[in-house]
Design a protein around this nucleic acid. Structure first.
Lengths: 118, 118
DNA sequence: AACACATATATCCTTTAAGCACATACGTCA
DNA sequence: TGACGTATGTGCTTAAAGGATATATGTGTT
């Protein structure tokens, strides 16, 4: 896709998606990678490095907190929980997304209207 | 902005906005800067450097073509026209935006539904 | 025991994009 | 002449994403 629209690279909304997934229940990186694809913002799985990077940064900023979970089988997991500040950030994302979605739909309509009168 | 949603930095959709503005009629950088704010993707004017950078890059990629216009008063303008390839790219952006808007609205609804059942 | 495999986390390096300040130049009007 | 509005650009720095790779644990297989 030469100069391809959206490109599927930006606008993947990893941060709000992680916050939403954690709002619905605490989780950990590896599991989140799979859950993120359900939000429809990316094709295929999110690159692991990106998810872990976001999680660590979000913890630094106080949106999530984590603790090691060595229960069960396999390697230990770092289990993440959303914080009150994370909930506030998610709320702000919701407001932003509503505004953004509205702008996009208006944009699309403007295009259709223009194309129609050719 | 500490973890601020959207941040207002990314997702400004300069490229599709420029293409749309040019679809409706040829224009030039300085004028486009003002028109871009109408699309609702940014607060205030787009930074000039960004717009000119996009225009030159889009010309390299064949989405727009330009010619100097020294008519009228003031400094000469580089007047841009959308090309067929630009129209194709815009069409791809439209498809992308519809999908993206849908995903965002679903995201918002998912949030509201979850919050409602607390 | 050796090996492959799924799970799980993390770091490194490079490229890409944005932010922001600044430089240049023309014409008008006080 | 000097400030201001118009108009186009460049340069430097930071922020984010991409993608490859490293590490480690437990399970199942031969």
């Amino acid at each position: 896709m030469s100069g391809g629209a959206g490109g599927g690279k930006r606008d993947r909304y990893v941060q709000p998606s992680v916050l939403m997934a954690l709002l619905e229940g605490s989780s950990y990186g590896y599991e989140l990678i799979q859950k993120l694809s359900d939000f429809g913002f990316m094709r295929g799985d999110a690159p692991p490095g990106m998810v872990y990077r976001h999680l660590r940064q979000m913890e630094e900023e106080g949106m999530v907190s984590s603790q090691w979970d060595a229960e069960g089988t396999g390697p230990a997991r770092r289990n993440y929980t959303i914080t009150d500040q994370g909930r506030e950030t998610l709320e702000a994302w919701i407001v932003f997304m509503e505004r953004q979605a509205e702008a996009m739909l208006a944009f699309v309509e403007r295009y259709r209207n223009f194309s129609a009168k050719d």
